[in-house]
C-alpha cells in the first residue's frame, strides 16, 4: 500500500497506543516527582493490574455476571466492573508494597529506591508467572470487526474507541483531583518542595499514599486496556512497554504529569507512524531517538520546569 495513504490509519493506532502509554506514564511521573525515584516496577504494576482484572472478571463470571457484549464492544459490563474493582485492589497491593519495602528505604536516597524497584519488578512478574503461567490469557475470546470510516480513510474498532475514551475520562478525573481537591493541591505542593510541605504542616504521608493509589489505579487501567488492544495479556506486558513509557515521561518533562500525557501521545503516534517508513522492529528505537533528540534540544522536556 502507498506509504502516505497508510498514515491516517497509523495515527489512529498511535492515539490508542499513546492513550495507554500516557496512563502508564502518569504514575511514573507522580512517583518521580513526589518520592524522587524512577520506579522500574511500574510496568509490572500494570501487568499486576491486568491480571487482577482477569481474576476479578473470572470471579464475577462465577457469580453469574456474564461478560457478553456490551453494545458494540467485544466485552461486557463485567469487564468494566472488574477493571474498576481491580484498580482498587491493585492500589491496595501497591500501598502494601510501599509499607513493607519502599517506606523503610525512603531515607536512603533515590538510587537505592530505584534498585529495589527493579527487585519489585522481577518479583511481581514472577508471581504472575507462578500463578497464571507464561502463556497468554484472554479477557474475551473471538475477534471484533473494525468499522470503516471511508471519509477519513481509517478503520477503527469500538473497543479502541473505548480505550481512548476511558483514558480521556481518567485524565479528566485526575486533572480535577489535582486542581480542585485539597489533597490534590497538596500533592502538587509536595512535588514542588517536600521539605516546605512538612514545614507547612501538610500530611506528607497521606500525599505519598495517594501518589501510590493514583499511580497504581492508572497503571491498572493501562495494563487492562493494553490487554484489550492486544487481545491477550502476559506477565511481560508492562515490562515490554516500560522503556517506551520512560521515554515518554522524559520527553514530556520528568515529574510533570501533563508532560507525561503529552509525551505518551507523541511517543505512541511516532512509534506507529514510523512503521510506514521503517520495519516494525524499530518501534522502541524510535521512542529513544525522539527522547535523545529532546534531551539534546531541551533537557527538561516539553513541559518540564527549569531548575
Amino acid at each position: 500500500m502507498d506509504t502516505l495513504a497508510r498514515i491516517p490509519q497509523l495515527l489512529v493506532y498511535g492515539v490508542i497506543s499513546g492513550s495507554i502509554l500516557s496512563l502508564g506514564g502518569i504514575g511514573i511521573s507522580l512517583t518521580y516527582s513526589i518520592l524522587g525515584f524512577a520506579n522500574f516496577a511500574h510496568g509490572d504494576i500494570m501487568a499486576l493490574g491486568a491480571y487482577i482484572t482477569l481474576g476479578v472478571l473470572t470471579l464475577l463470571g462465577g457469580w453469574g455476571l456474564t461478560n457478553t457484549n456490551f453494545g458494540p464492544l467485544s466485552f461486557g459490563i463485567g469487564f468494566i466492573l472488574a477493571l474498576v474493582i481491580s484498580m482498587g485492589l491493585t492500589a491496595a497491593a501497591v500501598v502494601l508494597i510501599d509499607r513493607v519495602l519502599f517506606k523503610r528505604l525512603r531515607r536512603t536516597g533515590s538510587i537505592i529506591l530505584m534498585m529495589s524497584s527493579i527487585g519489585v519488578a522481577l518479583g511481581l512478574r514472577n508471581i504472575l508467572q507462578f500463578f497464571w503461567g507464561p502463556q497468554p490469557h484472554y479477557y474475551v475470546q473471538g475477534i471484533q470487526l473494525a468499522t470503516q470510516i471511508p471519509a477519513l480513510g481509517i478503520r477503527v474498532k469500538p473497543d479502541q474507541i473505548f480505550i481512548v475514551g476511558t483514558a480521556v475520562l481518567l485524565v479528566i478525573l485526575l486533572h480535577g483531583f489535582l486542581q480542585y481537591t485539597k489533597i490534590g493541591k497538596a500533592m502538587r505542593a509536595t512535588a514542588d518542595n517536600m521539605d516546605l510541605s512538612r514545614v507547612t504542616g501538610i500530611n506528607t504521608d497521606r500525599v505519598i499514599l495517594w501518589t501510590w493509589v493514583i499511580g497504581a489505579a492508572l497503571a491498572t487501567a493501562a495494563g487492562a486496556l493494553a490487554g484489550v488492544e492486544n487481545k491477550f495479556i502476559t506477565p511481560e506486558l508492562g515490562w515490554q512497554m516500560l522503556l517506551s513509557i520512560f521515554a515518554s515521561v522524559v520527553l514530556g518533562g520528568l515529574g510533570n504529569i501533563y508532560g507525561a500525557i503529552l509525551g505518551g501521545m507523541v511517543i505512541g503516534i511516532s512509534e506507529e507512524v514510523s512503521t510506514a517508513f521503517v520495519s516494525t522492529g524499530y518501534k522502541p528505537a524510535i521512542a529513544f531517538i525522539i527522547m535523545i533528540l529532546m534531551l539534546l534540544v531541551k533537557p527538561t522536556g516539553l513541559l518540564g520546569k527549569r531548575r
Binding site: 493541591k185 514542588d192 521539605d195 516546605l196 520546569k305
Partner: peptide
C-alpha cells in the same frame, strides 16, 4: 530560600 510552592 525555596519558601514558596512555585507551580501553585
Amino acid at each position: 530560600v525555596e519558601n514558596i510552592f512555585p507551580s501553585l
